[in-house]
Structure formats: C-alpha cells, structure tokens
Amino acid sequence: MKPKQNQHPLRYSIYSLIAVVAAMIFFFPIYWAFSTSLRNPLDTFTVSGLGIPFLNFEPTLTNWVDQLATEEARKAVYNSTVIAVFASILALALGIPAAYALARFRFKTISNKDLTIWFLSQRVLPPVATVVPFYLIMQFLNLLDTQLALILINATFVLPFVVVIVRQTFLDLPIELEEAAFMDGARNYGAFLRVALPLAAPAIAATGLIMFAFTWNEFLFAITLSSKEVITIPIHMAGAVDTRGVQFWFMAVRAMIAMIPPVLIALLAQRYIVQGLTLGAVKG
C-alpha cells in the first residue's frame, strides 16, 4: 500500500506535526545524553530549557577527553569490539552453511521446517536459565574473565538468528543460477562458495552487523563471567555508579560511546532490520 498522493493540506500538516512530535519523543533521550555529555559537571543540573549547546550553556569536551583518557574506558571499547567481532564471525561461519543446507537440501528424518523452528526456539530461551551452568562450566575450564568465554557464549546466542535470516536470503535467490553452475561441473561446495555466497553477501554483511550490535549490547553474561580483566562497555557503564553516586556527566559520555556503534548499525542495516528482527517472518 503506497501513501496517497493527493491529500488534504490541513490533514497533511496535522499528520506531519504529529509525526514530528513522535520522532522528537524517540530522539529526545539520545539527544539528552549528548547534551549532558557536553556540559561542565557543575552545569549538569542547572541548565535550563532544552539544554541546547551554546544557547543554554557553554559546551565543553572535557568529559569526553577525561573519560577517553582512562585506561578502563579504552579497555572496555577494545574488549567489546574484539568480543563482538569474533562472536559475529564465529556465528556467521557456523550459521551460513547451516542456512544453506536448510534452504537448498531436503532433510528426511527431521523436516527442514522443524529444524528451522528448532534453531529459532533457541532464541526464545531466557539467557538467565543458562547463566549459572555457564558460570560453573567456565570456572571449571578456567575461562572466567576471558574474552574467549564471552565470544563462545555470544556466538551461541546469535547463531539461531544467523541460521534463520540467512536461510531466508538463500531461499530468495533463484536456484537456477546454482543449477547452471552444476552444469558447468561444479559440485555442491562450488555452487555454494562461488554462486550462492557472493549473491547473498550484502544480506550476510547486514546480518553480521546486526549480530555485532547484539553482542555489543549483551550485559547479563558479561557481568556474570567477567570481573576484572574483560570489562565490556556495559560493565564499564555499570561501574560508573560508585559510592559518590552517579556521575551524570561521565555516564552520558559512556552512554554515548555505548550507543553510537549499534545506533549507526540500525541506520546502515535499515533495509534488513525488519527481516532480521522478526527472524525472517516479515519481509522488509
């Protein structure tokens, strides 16, 4: 259903106004973090109006400079990046072939549909149900407070997403192209690697980005399995509340650092979000 072309001007203005107000409500908290992050700590609570930089207060970058200068902040960014990158790569490496199998072959003992649903059902599993066992397992393996532990667990939690989304992508590709490759003598692996994979590359890249955002945002396992060394950004944030209370100015900087990458991903992967977040059930 396309938007109507001829609309009453008054209705157009009213609808537009409501839409602008709605967008402002959803934008305000992010804007507020940005505004707070630029304030001198003393100004945090005294700024009037909408806290517009230059208009309501004199902005300063000191909070950003102070925060980024701490070793802990840089470590958090480093850890979060490493964990998110490797967990996404691992999930893609395991998930893409499985997605291809579900899209292109027929399984007999358990049907393709049930296999897909099985992968999908892993996603609704409440993470807290596996927090205690994973804690004990990682303790036993001497992996507490390591990047490896969080990479393995995050890869596990995003893997079903990869399987289900990429499966849909392969299904949408014309199978004839791969059949043509068979005529040219290619075997299954050749058809997969040289024909299907390159065609699915944009969707796979978008899926990878979405998985990166999920892992970047993960908090429960990070705080369970890490204590000193492998501080991720969310844990670093939780640490901003100390005995002196919440330091709003640093909090705002940390919130911005935490949110910028995933928010950019949301904008970049816009086309794929609907399909991605509904696990391929709704086409974007």
């Binding site: 609808y15 602008v20 959803f26 934008f27 979405i210 969310p234 944030m237 939780a238 949110m259 928010v263």
Partner: peptide, 28 residues
C-alpha cells in the same frame, strides 16, 4: 503510511532506539 513532511528522515529518527544498548538506555 500517509504522505508526510520529511517522511523518510522522521522514519530514520524513529529507528534510533532499536539497537541502543539497553543497559545504557536504563542509565540514560
């Protein structure tokens, strides 16, 4: 789904919360 002023821009703004780190959102 109607014709709106700056529709795609407003729609993009509406997307921002989707992937915002939930913990950061809580503190925010």
């Amino acid at each position: 789904n109607q014709r709106l002023w700056a529709r795609s821009f407003l729609r993009a703004v509406m997307l921002l919360p989707i992937f915002a780190t939930p913990l950061a959102v809580g503190y925010l």
